[in-house]
């Protein structure tokens, strides 16, 4: 038993962090704020070239043949860098949808709603195809972007995740049965949790850096216990969620070490919660500046909301854990 990251996993995380810093610096990503299309095919292809989506595709099929553990490590870095676009869907679609693995095809996803009401889809302007997840029927269906009629909403909560409204979802082609749909939900929980952990770590680091330098009453605000304790709680949340997410990923990779479905639901729950709570503390510690558009604290908060919105509700995730405990 050795739950520390291997040297290869450490190197992988560093490589992705470097890629993100070079290709997706926040100031360049922010140029597209509020546009109906934010993620772009060129950036996507570069992520694909770096192997971000092909991590778990077997060597024989041109992938890297790695596990969900490595994917989680990579997704923490993507979350930390606030990389826009349907990262989880494109990663889960690798192997199911041709072109998804190398980033030449951007794959989005949406759950087929059980009842009436507006259908909202993230990044519809940028994606090439959509996976429609039908939890009721236990199916994954593929829909070409051209077959969907949709319009961008005027103002999306996350300025970097444009939401589109669609009136109806076409039937689509069956690309996965119940096993794939279950795997999609389980592994999607882990990867979404990993993005959340990345967000939570980013806001923690941003907050600590600010608390060290911002002075009031003649001293750094980080010397006040009221601020220190907020920061300490951010670390506890992020590190607890990180351990939960990575343990869930390993539990999927290594049969017999635990219940992967329960671990994945817990990972999603805690990963998103850490992202949301740490973003709130980030705004609070930044004071008035935290409420401005300029300081990116709000971008992490809104992305956390988007992640939570892509998952089953917290109550449903908790019910899965309770049921399988």
């Amino acid at each position: 038993m050795d739950f520390e990251r291997s040297e290869d996993q450490v190197a992988l995380a560093e490589g992705v962090a470097r890629l993100c810093a070079g290709r997706f610096p926040l100031e360049s990503v922010r140029v597209a704020e509020g546009r109906p299309t934010v993620a772009d095919g060129k950036g996507w292809a570069e992520l694909g070239e770096a192997g971000v989506f092909a991590l778990r595709v077997s060597d024989a099929d041109g992938g890297l043949g790695l596990g969900l553990a490595e994917a989680a490590v990579v997704f923490e870095e993507l979350g930390r860098a606030l990389v826009p676009g349907p990262l989880v869907a494109s990663s889960l679609a690798a192997g199911l949808v041709p072109g998804a693995a190398d980033g030449s095809v951007m794959v989005g996803a949406v759950r087929r709603p059980a009842g009436p009401g507006p259908i909202l889809i993230e990044d519809l302007g940028a994606v090439d195809v959509l996976i429609v997840v039908d939890d009721g029927a236990g199916e994954l269906r593929l829909v070409e972007r051209g077959a969907v009629t949709g319009a961008p909403l005027q103002r999306s909560l996350d300025p970097l995740t444009p939401m589109w409204r669609v009136e109806a979802l076409p039937e689509g082609d069956l690309v996965g049965g119940e096993e794939d749909q279950t795997r999609w939900g389980r592994d999607g929980n882990v990867l979404t949790g990993a993005l959340g952990v990345g967000l939570a770590l980013a806001t923690m680091e941003m907050t600590v850096a600010y608390a060290r330098t911002r002075e009031q009453f003649g001293r750094a605000i980080g010397s006040f216990q009221a601020v220190k304790h907020l920061c300490a709680d951010m670390l506890v949340r992020a590190e607890s969620a990180r351990a939960a997410v990575e343990a869930a990923a390993v539990t999927v990779d290594q049969p017999g070490v635990g219940d992967p479905v329960r671990a994945a639901a817990g990972a999603a729950l805690l990963g998103c919660e850490a992202a949301q709570a740490n973003a709130r503390s980030c705004i609070q510690v930044h004071g008035g500046m935290g409420f401005t558009w300029e300081v990116p604290a709000h971008l992490y908060l809104m992305r956390a909301q988007v992640l939570a919105g892509s998952l089953p509700s917290p109550a449903d995730l908790a019910a899965v854990v309770a049921d399988r405990y």
Partner: peptide, 29 residues
Amino acid sequence: PGLLGRIGHLGAELDAQWAVTRRNVSQAA
């Protein structure tokens, strides 16, 4: 349902601390 929601949440948190424990032990090793 409300109680089960809290139980599930506590379960996820306990699982997380079990993961933290195994990480801590690995690091100590």
